[in-house]
Amino acid sequence: MNIEDMKAAWAEHDRKLDSMLQLNLATLRDMRVNTARWSLRRLASGVVIELAITVLALLLLGNFISLHLDEPRFFVPALVVHLSAIALAGSCALQVAMIGSLDYAGPVVSVQKELGKLRILRVRTTKWTFILACVLWAPILVVVARGAIGVDLYMIASAVNRADANFYDWLVANVLFGAAVAIALLWISRRFPARFASSPIVKSFMDDIAGRSLTAAVESLESITTFERGTDDGSSK
């Protein structure tokens, strides 16, 4: 069989296909009417919600910082969390902008390159959000407890009245503990990927933090760039 012969056969099948293929017009009209419901963009809506929550957190943190400028035991952790939230908000805003500028009717290579960059940014954001959440769990808890319900966790943690003397030790110890937990979970996610594959969402998250998703996304982007340049052999990756 020759590929050129196959091309002629393909055209013949096409004519047959056109006469046999039926579109369900009623379903298409329903989709037209309910576009908003049907085309719920999970990715875009997820990132927008993430951005809205982060911006709200930034406002609350800003207010908290302004109220505790003279109390370093609250000011310092709030500032660290605030800086992390700014980085997360920046990433979310960038993702929203990238999604908004995507035009699926654009040339395939350009669109796929943009999608590849977006995928890499999302994976990196997930990984760093996880790492920072582990490392900063204690500062976050201190700020939330104080800001939301007025509780001074240093007092509880030290269980003595002279909390000021111990708060840095307490905070640093918990940050280090969080870092150790993050490192352990990253190691587990790399060492035992299959153990966490019971749910596709869990598997995807573990792949994100283990770096497997990033590797795949980078390879995918590289393959498109190579295709654009014209230097590979077209084998499936």
Binding site: R37, W38, S39, L40, R41, R42, L43, A44, L115, R119, P200, I201, K203, S204, D207, S213, A216, S220
Partner: peptide
Amino acid sequence: RSTTRRDRDTVSI
């Protein structure tokens, strides 16, 4: 390229 439904743009109804 999407590995899970989480990555896909739309929800199947």
